[in-house]
């Protein structure tokens, strides 16, 4: 187990091995996302209450699920970089942050677009919407601190502490926002209670959810490999690997 850990922690080993994973991730993504989109948007039956506008769910729900787990993955990378001082984990955290921020933004925007036909307004201060917005701010904080600190390793560690403190705080923020909403306003509409979906509706959704995870890991690996190339540009193995191109 520890040998495995050390091997994968070395940028060189990671770079070589992760290159082999890329085609599988790309294949998974390119297979599942188009399938899910076409199936969900064209062939899945229309909802008996919401009509066709429910179809934005096929983008919104995967984005919202991915938004939260990408924060968890970023913070986990931050924790590893704090505890074991792995350069690779620092690079992983730094490259996951912008992707996660965009996914959260997409979840918010598609949610707003879905809200307009359903609730008659783009934005309400509902507990779930608010905590997703705060999740976006958490990403923004990590990104801003990482940018301000420059490329130094110490800046990365400060950002890692922020990400980890954010991860511990995430449930607190979520519960406090829940209590703020639920005890005071009557629930005029609920995002949580959906009618039980038939299989024709949730199968494309499942394809989309798995597809966006594939997409996330694919893009993350691409960015991480680019980051490794930039950081290790002076090391011997990069030089050997790319000597034809220098």
């Amino acid at each position: 187990m520890w040998r495995w850990f050390h091997e994968w922690g070395s940028p060189r080993y990671f770079y070589a091995r992760s290159g082999r994973l890329l085609p599988y991730l790309a294949g998974l993504t390119l297979l599942l996302i188009p399938t899910g989109i076409v199936w969900g948007l064209l062939y899945a039956p229309a909802d008996y209450q919401q009509g066709h506008s429910y179809r934005i769910m096929y983008v919104h729900v995967p984005a919202a699920i991915l938004a939260q787990s990408s924060y968890a993955m970023m913070a986990a990378a931050g924790m590893v970089s704090l505890i074991w001082r792995l350069k690779l984990a620092d690079a992983a955290m730094q490259t996951a942050a912008p992707i996660g921020a965009w996914v959260t933004a997409i979840a918010l925007i598609t949610g707003a677009l879905w809200g307009k036909p359903m609730w008659g307004t783009y934005w309400v201060w509902d507990a779930r919407l608010t905590s997703t917005l705060i999740l976006l701010f958490l990403f923004a904080g990590v990104l801003a601190l990482r940018q301000a600190a420059g490329p130094s390793q110490s800046g990365g560690r400060a950002a890692a502490v922020l990400a980890v403190v954010g991860l511990i705080n995430l449930p607190i923020i979520k519960f406090s926002v829940d209590w703020w909403f639920t005890l005071h306003q009557p629930a005029s509409f609920s995002v949580t209670e959906k009618p039980a979906m038939p299989i024709e509706m949730w199968a494309p959704l499942l394809a989309m959810v798995i597809g966006v995870y594939g997409w996330f890991f694919w893009v993350w690996l691409l960015r991480l490999r680019q980051e490794i190339r930039e950081r290790e540009v002076r090391s011997e193995w990069i030089r050997q690997r790319y000597q034809n191109e220098f």
Binding site: A148, V165, G166
Partner: peptide, 20 residues
């Protein structure tokens, strides 16, 4: 400004609970 961006999410729980 950077401080506000970093801290805002963490200041939400005391703000919400305190005002409520």
């Amino acid at each position: 400004a950077l401080l506000l961006v970093i801290l805002m999410p963490f200041l939400v729980p005391p703000l919400v609970l305190g005002t409520q």
